[in-house]
Computed example of a mutant assay.
Amino acid sequence: MGEGSSRGLRERIDDRISDPIWWNDVLQLAKTVLAAVAAWVIAASVLDLPQPFLAPWAALLVVHATVYRTFSKGAQQVAATVVAVLLATLVGEAFGLSTWAITLLLVVALVLGSVPWLGAEATTIATTGLVVLTTGFDDDVMLLSRLYDTAIGVVVGLLVNVMVWPPLRRHTAAKALDAVDDGIGMLLVDIAGGLGDGCQDEDVTGWIDRTRDLDQDLDQAWALVRQAQESARMNPRRSARSMRDPRQWHELLRRLEQAVAETRSLARTLGGQSAHRETWGEAFADPWISVLADVGRAAVEADPEGLVGARGRLVALSEDMRRTERSAEWPVYGALIINLRNIIDAMDEVAAANPITGRRLRIRLPAPRA
């Protein structure tokens, strides 16, 4: 492996291990394993239950990505597990272990799983019931043991997820907002570069398509902010307080939506002009394209001062054109100036709030010795 490849690999590893989102995912995986193993040890070694497999099963079911969902979905899954154990026992006592018994069990389990209160846990009821039916159903002591197993798994899963660094999806949501912010900025820079080089119709179509991609990224960002808000509910961490009512995040998302819409409008306006610079004239084209590029770079770099400076230059350009220019292209000038002004107004608060993403962890691979 060459020195360049080794350096690139090292940078990727450093970037990953300094990413708090990656560590959150690793921690959640470790907590899930810890809950399942602890439930198994308690059921098998401490209480010496005869078939303790339902304890880690139930623990896996209740460890969710948020504390609130651990309680809400966990309650539904626990109810589904208890229903499955009872259902398997009743079917086994009535029909024994046979093909007809398994068929009846699956049909009833899938029907019960469609009950709204159970949260569509049809698969949980069917699989758990199938395991219980095929591993023994004719012993009352075994039935109670399985219910104990389930209770142990539920309690252990809840305690682990709540007490061991309860998950808070703030960084994930912030990273999604930052990605949309950067996407808008890079698109504006590309539009400015395309106009400077002389863009074609396919360039304009590509810019419009990229705004549609940004719309999809925004939908994902909204979903992640809602998940972050949910992760703050019932979360004992002090940093969860600001996420319980994330008004600032909602305002930033609305501003990003406006910026994407204005960028699409700007691109459509450009698509209506067959020869941009030649039709506009240098008095408008050069300063406007320069401001457009600077706005894009300021958005990528989260530079609110750069956006303020760009707004001042845009206002000066508008005043200068109003005093000196009598071109038939004034409707186009006005549309492009308004689009760009609205983009600046939408993005300045986003740039100012950029520290909302938090800091990356200062974790790196040890430097190799010379």
Score class of each variant (00 low, 15 high):
L256F: 01
D286V: 15
L266V: 07
R247N: 06
F284D: 01
Q248T: 11
S290G: 09
W280R: 06
L256C: 03
Q273H: 10
W249I: 00
E257M: 09
G296S: 14
R297T: 14
H276N: 06
R254Y: 10
R277S: 11
R264L: 06
H250E: 10
L292V: 09
R237Q: 11
D294C: 04
F284H: 10
R237Y: 06
H250F: 05
R244E: 00
F284W: 10
S242F: 04
P287V: 10
L292Y: 09
P246Q: 02
P246G: 02
G281Y: 11
M243W: 00
H250K: 09
D286K: 08
L253E: 04
G281F: 10
W249K: 01
L253F: 08
E257D: 14
I289Y: 06
E278L: 08
E251V: 13
V295S: 02
G272C: 14
W288T: 07
A275G: 07
Q258V: 15
R238W: 04
A275K: 09
R247K: 10
D294I: 05
S290N: 05
R244T: 01
E282N: 07
A275L: 15
R254S: 09
S274A: 08
E262Q: 15
R244L: 00
R264G: 13
G272Y: 14
A283I: 13
H250R: 13
R268G: 09
A259V: 12
V295K: 01
R254K: 12
L253D: 06
P287F: 06
T279A: 14
I289F: 05
L256N: 05
R244P: 00
S265T: 15
W288R: 08
L256E: 11
S274Q: 11
Q258R: 15
A267P: 08
L270C: 08
S265D: 07
L266M: 15
H250D: 09
E262D: 15
V260P: 02
T279Q: 12
P246D: 00
V260H: 05
T279P: 07
V291I: 15
V260M: 03
R277P: 03
V291Q: 01
V260N: 03
L253A: 06
Q273A: 11
R268M: 12
R277W: 10
R238S: 03
W288N: 02
L256Q: 14
E282G: 01
A267Y: 03
E282W: 12
Q273R: 11
L252K: 03
Q273L: 14
T263R: 11
V291P: 02
T269Y: 04
L252M: 04
E257N: 13
R297C: 05
I289W: 07
Q273I: 15
Q248P: 04
L266T: 07
L292I: 10
D286G: 03
M243D: 01
S242D: 07
S239M: 02
R247D: 08
P287G: 08
T263V: 07
R255E: 11
V260Y: 02
H276S: 07
F284G: 00
R297I: 08
V291L: 02
Q248A: 03
R238D: 04
L266H: 11
Q248V: 01
L252C: 02
F284A: 04
S239A: 02
D294Y: 06
A293W: 15
S242R: 14
E257F: 06
L292G: 01
R277M: 12
G296Q: 12
E251I: 13
